[in-house]
Design a binder for these strands. Structure first.
Lengths: 197, 197
DNA sequence: GTAGATGCAAACGCTTTGCGCCGCG
DNA sequence: CGCGGCGCAAAGCGTTTGCATCTAC
C-alpha cells in the first residue's frame, strides 16, 4: 500500500468540448453535495485487495457519517466512536490509500490542514469553496471545469491529469448580519478545533 | 506583523462579464511568467511600514533571483548567499507577511510543501500547473478565471474573495521521450530536494 | 533611546514509521 | 498457518516561537 497523503485530483469529467455559450452561468442553484451510497467494506476491500478488518469497517462508516470535507483528526474521533481501538496510525495509513485509489480526494487550503472528501469519478467536476467566516468547506458543481483546465494546460504544452479549483469566499448572510453564519445552512464544520489560524 | 503562511489568493482581475464566446480557447501560447520589476527594499519597506534591514534586503533580492515558484528552504539558501547571517526564522517570518501584503502568493500541491511566487495584482489571473514528471510549477494565464470562480461561488450564495486553479499535468515531450524533461524549456525547479515523495 | 527585527535553539503539530503482536482468509 | 494489518510510541520534518541581543530610525 502506498505512503503519503496526496494524489493528483482526478479529472472526473469526460473531457468536454468548448461549450457553445460560455462556461457556466446557467443551470441549477448550487448546494453542498449529492447523496452517495455508503462505502461497503466487503466490496471496497476486495476491490482494493485489502483484508476486511474492524478498523477499516469503522473508518469507512465514519467517512459515511462525516459526509463532506473532514480532516484526519475528526475522522479518527468518529472512527473511535464506532471502534475505540482504531489508532491514529491506521487512520493516517488509510487516508492516502483511499485517495490514491480514487475513493477520497484530498485538499489543502493553506492552513496546513489536509481535508478529505468522498470522490465520485462519474460526477461532474466540482470547485471547493472555503468559507472564510467559519472555515467550512463546500463542494459545488463547476461545469466544464476540466475542459477549462485542460485548455489552459494544453495551451502551455502539457497534458492534463487532474485539476482543482479552490475558491475563498465570504458568506453573504454573514455580511448582512455579523452574528449570522452560526445560522447558515452549512453543515457543522467537520474539522478539528483550529481552523483558520 | 502577522503569523502564519497562508493568505487567500487575491482575485487579481477586475471581475469580468461572461465572455461572449466561451471562456478560453483563444489567444496566446502560454509561457512561464512575465518579467517583473525587482523588489525595491526602501520602497517596499516604507510601503509596509517595515524597517529596512540587511536580512530583508537579502530576502528581497533572493526572491528576485528565484523568479518563479520557490519554497522557504530554497529562499533561505539564496538569501544566505547574499547575507550569510539571515536565519531560517527570519525567512519564515517574512514569507507570510509578504503574502498577506499581496507581494507574494503561496500555494500547496499536496506534497506538504508551501511554494511562493511573486504576485502582481494588475496581471490577469493565472493557473498553476504542477508538472508531475519533474515537480516543477508553472504559471500560465487563465483568462476569465476569476469571473468563472465568482460565478460558481456566487451561485452557491457566497461572495468571492480569491481563487486558485491548480492543474496537474504531464509534459508532452516527456511522453514522447522518456528521458526528456531534463531538456524541457522549464527553468530548473526552485524547490528543495524532495519534490514528489 | 526605543520599538521593532533578528538569530538561535527549543518547541510545535501534523504526519510517518519501526516494531512486535494479532487476526483475516 | 502465514502474511497483511494493527496499535503503540517514537521519530520526522517543515514551520513557529520565546528570548536575549541588536539596530534602524
Amino acid at each position: 500500500m502506498s505512503t503519503t497523503t496526496p494524489i493528483f485530483p482526478p479529472i472526473s469529467e469526460p473531457s468536454f468540448p468548448p461549450p457553445s455559450q460560455g462556461a457556466g452561468a446557467t443551470g441549477a442553484t448550487a448546494a453542498t453535495a449529492a447523496p452517495r451510497p455508503p462505502l461497503n467494506p466487503e466490496k471496497l476491500c476486495s476491490q482494493l485487495g485489502w483484508k476486511v478488518t474492524a478498523a477499516r469497517r469503522a473508518i469507512f462508516k465514519a467517512i459515511d457519517k462525516l459526509d463532506g470535507y473532514f480532516d484526519a483528526e475528526v475522522l479518527l474521533v468518529q472512527a473511535k466512536k464506532l471502534h475505540p481501538a482504531v489508532s491514529r496510525a491506521t487512520v493516517y495509513r488509510t487516508l492516502p490509500d483511499l485517495c490514491s485509489n480514487g475513493i477520497l480526494r484530498s485538499t489543502e487550503f493553506g492552513d496546513g490542514h489536509y481535508r478529505y472528501c468522498r470522490h465520485d469519478p462519474d460526477a461532474p467536476p466540482t470547485a471547493e469553496i472555503y468559507v472564510v467566516d467559519c472555515g467550512r468547506i463546500l463542494k459545488v458543481p463547476a461545469p466544464f471545469l476540466s475542459w477549462y483546465a485542460a485548455t489552459v494546460t494544453e495551451r502551455a504544452g502539457y497534458e492534463l491529469i487532474g485539476q482543482r479549483l479552490q475558491t475563498f469566499a465570504r458568506c453573504v448572510k454573514k455580511k448582512e448580519d455579523v452574528n449570522a453564519c452560526g445560522s447558515c445552512e452549512h453543515q457543522p464544520a467537520a474539522v478539528a478545533p483550529a481552523p483558520m489560524r
